[in-house]
């Protein structure tokens, strides 16, 4: 049996506006209805940023742990890899009996998805630091802690930021389904009237714009943080 498309249609079909009645792409309708998208947009921003920030904190701690105990890398990638494979729409429902409906449920799932990408990139970045450089740092009297914070992490930054960029764009995309967890976001607006072109294009376009904006901001951060390395991110 096929799910009925009996959703609440957000447009007024009887509107005098011929564009809306004919289901065209109507800039006028969008301009008049901007308010509708404001709250979902900020929910989307909130979900994406909190998930990436929390995910980074966890992945960073795990990566530092695995940096000292190499045998941990395999198991951590294995576990986060399985999490990563689970379809988000399924996880949003699977968590609900445990954590209920709302932003928390969505954030747990979205955070879990960033772990594989971030962990792998941080570990790879640290691994790629030339051992001569570390030896030189030790040679001038750096402690292990100083080697990590003053040599290894700065040199690993391009890989780390590349991971953050992938995690950010991925999370913005996944947050589109967060409304299934009761967390709102722009996906809810798309879902509200999936056959109305103006709505679909504008809400989808906002998601895309947010992804691009976060990506560009991270790229700018990289240029600011790493003035010695103006090369493009890998």
């Amino acid at each position: 049996m096929i799910a009925l498309l009996a959703q609440v249609e957000i447009r007024d079909r009887a509107a005098e506006d011929g564009c809306v009645a004919g289901n065209g792409f109507c800039p006028g309708w969008i301009a008049d209805n901007l308010d509708r998208y404001l709250e979902p947009f900020w929910q989307h921003v909130y979900l994406s940023i909190v998930a990436v920030v929390v995910g980074f904190a966890i992945a960073f701690a795990l990566a530092l742990l695995a940096h000292e105990r190499r045998w941990l890398v395999g198991p951590i990638i294995g576990i986060t890899g399985v999490l990563y494979t689970l379809p988000s729409i399924a996880v949003f429902f699977l968590l609900q009996p445990i954590t209920g409906r709302g932003a928390l449920t969505a954030l747990i799932a979205l955070t879990a998805y960033t772990l594989l990408i971030l962990f792998r990139n941080i570990v790879t970045g640290l691994e790629n630091v030339p051992s001569e450089t570390k030896d030189a740092a030790r040679g001038i009297g750096y402690t292990d802690r100083q080697v990590l914070w003053k040599v290894e992490l700065p040199l690993a930054m391009p890989e780390i930021i590349a991971g953050l960029r992938i995690a950010a764009t991925t999370t913005v995309g996944l947050a589109t389904l967060a409304f299934f967890a009761g967390a709102g976001g722009l996906g809810g607006e798309i879902f509200a009237d999936i056959t109305f072109k103006s709505n679909v294009v504008f809400a989808g376009g906002l998601c895309l714009a947010l992804a691009i904006l976060l990506d560009v901001m991270l790229l700018a951060a990289q240029r600011l943080l790493l003035p010695w390395r103006r090369a493009v991110a890998t």
Binding site: L5, N23, I166, T169, T170, V172, G173, L174, T176, L177, G187, I190, F191, I194, T195, F196, K197, N199, V200, V201, A203, G204, C207, L208, A211, I212, D215
Partner: peptide, 22 residues
């Protein structure tokens, strides 16, 4: 691949439904 990652799957499906139908 980068563009593909940024396009939400729900938006993609919705776009096809709105413009081409179910």
């Amino acid at each position: 691949a980068n563009v593909g990652r940024a396009v939400p799957s729900l938006a993609l499906i919705a776009f096809f439904v709105a413009y081409l139908g179910v």
